[in-house]
């Protein structure tokens, strides 16, 4: 396809519920960058961005259903692939 590495992004509300999620994303996505704006954070990454359930659970110290993300999600770009263990945003297929 094309050589341009497209960027995906995920915007989350910045609140108590998402702090652990954001930390988990940071741990699992070294290539991601975090832009804090009033009330929210915009996480961008070239290619793909992954939210792993296990990492989130380690961060928040309890069981976590990835669909809880729906409550605090603001916006995203890229194709979504979600199962019980991971939510992946990507332009690669």
């Amino acid at each position: 396809m094309t050589e341009t590495k497209s960027t995906v992004f995920l915007c989350l509300q910045a609140n108590d519920d998402t702090r652990g999620v954001i930390d988990a994303i940071e741990r699992d996505n070294e290539h991601a960058s975090f832009d804090y704006q009033p009330g929210m954070v915009r996480i961008t990454a070239p290619g793909t961005l992954t939210v792993n359930r296990e990492t989130v659970e380690e961060e928040v110290g309890r069981e976590f259903d990835l669909q809880e993300l729906h409550i605090n999600m603001i916006s995203l770009s890229g194709h979504v692939d979600e199962d019980d263990d991971a939510l992946v945003l990507s332009w690669d297929r």
Binding site: Q13, Q37, G39, I74, S75, L76, H79
Partner: peptide, 30 residues
Amino acid sequence: SGAAYNGDMGAMTFGFSAQSDEARHMTLGL
């Protein structure tokens, strides 16, 4: 974001709440 910048907690909150559905709508659109 305009509401958040201008001290409008009410609009900011319904905005975030509505927008939390948008991620799903965008995915449906694509």
